[in-house]
Amino acid sequence: MLGEGIIKGLAETARNFVGSYVEADRLTTVQYPEERLPTKEAARNFPFLVFDGNDAQAGLRCVACQICEKECPPQCIYIEKSKDKKPDYVGKPQFYPKIFDIDISVCMSCQICVEVCPFEAIKMDTEFELSHTDRFDGLLFDKHQLAKSNEYYQKIHPAEAAEVDARLAAEKAKVEAKTKADAEAKAKAAAAKTAAPPPAPVPST
């Protein structure tokens, strides 16, 4: 009969209306600033620089190789290399970035900088509340704003960070083993050298 559907529809909307006050699980809206969903592990938006240890600037993994700067499609990264060198995580002296700027108003979150970095120095952040009243300087991040600790990285991307840490540790171990082996070999060679010319006397150790 005419009008039947309208009655049914009105009953349905009335049920929804009353139900939304009674059953809490009907309302799926997350009221954002007070309530927030945990970010997904794969979430990413803008890059940041990882540092080890406690000193953000001294511990930066970045060696200013400028690969990311060259690879960045929208060219939002600007790097100036330092004149001097500082030791990296394995103790090898490396250059470090004197200036490292990322213009996040230009960045397109493609993650290419992360892919190409050979030093695991640049990673993707999940921080999204970046609005600023100054749309030029407020969105141009320098290396002090970009530097974030490895612990933070482990917190936002646990699985990825564990893998990176393992790789770095393995590399470090390898390097240490190699230096040790080198040192041993050197010591051996030195020992052999010292031992060889005078064949007769036994080295007193």
């Binding site: 909307t13 929804n16 139900g19 939304s20 006050y21 009221q31």
Partner: peptide, 10 residues
């Protein structure tokens, strides 16, 4: 508000 509630929104 009412239309929101009808659609299970706030």
């Amino acid at each position: 508000k009412a239309i929101g509630r009808i659609q299970n929104r706030y």
